[in-house]
Amino acid sequence: MTAILVTGGAGYIGSHTVRHLMEQGHEVVVLDNLQTGHRGAVLTPHFYEGDISDAALITEIVKKHRITAAVHFAALSLVGESMKFPTKYLEANTVKSQLFVHALVDNGVKQLVFSSTAAVYGLPTQVPIPEDSPTHPINPYGLSKLFIEQYLQMMDTLHGLKWVALRYFNAAGASEDARIGEAHDPETHLIPLVLQTALGQRESLSIFGNDYNTPDGTCVRDYIHVRDLADAHARALQALENGKPSGSYNVGTGQGYSVLEIVEAARRITGREIPTILAPRREGDPDVLVAQVDKIAADLGFTAKHSDLETLITSAWNWHSQLSC
C-alpha cells in the first residue's frame, strides 16, 4: 500500500481522485485550505486544513504518513478571474506550487502528478490538439500552470523529481452514487449551469455566440468524465512507480460536443425546458477545443470509459437533483 498526499483533495476532481485511489487500496492524505473545496467531499480520515506553501506542515505530513508520492490539484482555476487578478493567480498557483515542490523534494518525495490544463495551449494551431503543439496561453490561469510544468522539468534535471502533468480539457459528471459532484461558487462550467437552469435555480442559460465555425454555430469542447480523470491520475502514479519518464499528457476523449448539443441532451435527460438566451461571444473563445489522446493511450493505457454524453449529463443531473431536495 502506497501513502499518497493529495493537495486540493476537497475539490471537484481532487475528491473523486481521492476516492478512486482509496478504492485501489492506497492510504490517501488530503491537504486543502478549503478556500474553494468542500470538507464533506473528503472521504479519507487523513485530512489537514492548510496551505501548500507551508513547508513545516508538508514536512510533518510526509514524515508522519511516510508519503512516497503526491498528486497536486490545489490551485485557483477561474479564467475570467485570472484576467482581472493575474498576480493573484501567479502567486497562488505558481509561486506556492514551487514552494510545495521544494518541500516534497527536501523530504525525499520524488514522484508527483500535477493537475495541468489545456489552457496552456492558448488558441490551438491544429485540432485535435497534440501534446507537442505550441504552448501560448492567452490568460494568466493557463500561464500559471505552464510555468509549473516548466519548473517541474527543471526539478527533474536538478533533483530527480519524476512527474506527470495531466492537461485536462473539460471535466464533467459526478460519482455514480451521487455522493460527490461539481459545485463551484461562482459556477462557470457549462453542464452545471445547464442543470441549474433545468432546476429553476437560474432563469435562463446564456449561450455566448452562435456564429462559430462549427456545425451548429456554437463552441465545441471535449468533455471528460471526472471518474475517467481520476483513473488517469491513478495510471500516472503507477507509470511513475514503474519508472516511466516524466512528461505531459492530454486527458480528453478525442471528440467534442457543442453547447447546443449539451443543452438538447440535458433537455431530453431531465425532461425540463431549459430556457436559453443568446449573448455576445466571449473574447478568446476558440471554435473547437478537442484533445488528441494517442499519447496517453500508448504510454499510460488510458482511454475514457464514462465520457459519453448520456453518462456525463445523467450522473451530473442525479447529483444536482439530490442537492436541491
Rank of each mutant, 00 (worst) to 15 (best):
A75M: 04
S175V: 03
N107E: 08
Q98E: 15
A74T: 03
Q98R: 04
P124S: 09
E91A: 08
L199G: 09
A69N: 05
Y89W: 09
G108C: 07
G122L: 02
V127W: 00
D185Y: 06
T157F: 10
K96C: 06
H136A: 13
S133N: 13
L99R: 06
V105K: 10
G173Q: 03
K145A: 14
T188G: 00
Q98H: 09
Y212Q: 11
D156N: 13
E182Q: 15
D211L: 05
E149L: 08
Y121T: 10
A183C: 09
P128Y: 02
E149M: 04
L143G: 07
A74I: 11
T94D: 07
L152G: 00
L190Q: 06
T87K: 12
P86W: 08
S116F: 02
P134H: 08
V113Q: 06
F208T: 11
G122Q: 04
L161F: 05
S175N: 07
A92Q: 13
P192C: 07
K96P: 03
S175C: 03
Y151W: 06
K64M: 01
L123S: 08
G209N: 12
L123F: 13
R66A: 05
K84D: 13
L104R: 03
D132Y: 11
D177C: 01
D132T: 08
E81C: 00
G122K: 00
A119K: 01
D185F: 02
L166I: 13
S82A: 11
Q201D: 15
Y168H: 11
Q98T: 08
L195K: 06
L195N: 11
G181F: 10
L158P: 06
Q111A: 08
L123Y: 13
A174Q: 06
G181V: 08
P128N: 07
F147V: 12
N93W: 14
T135R: 15
F169Y: 15
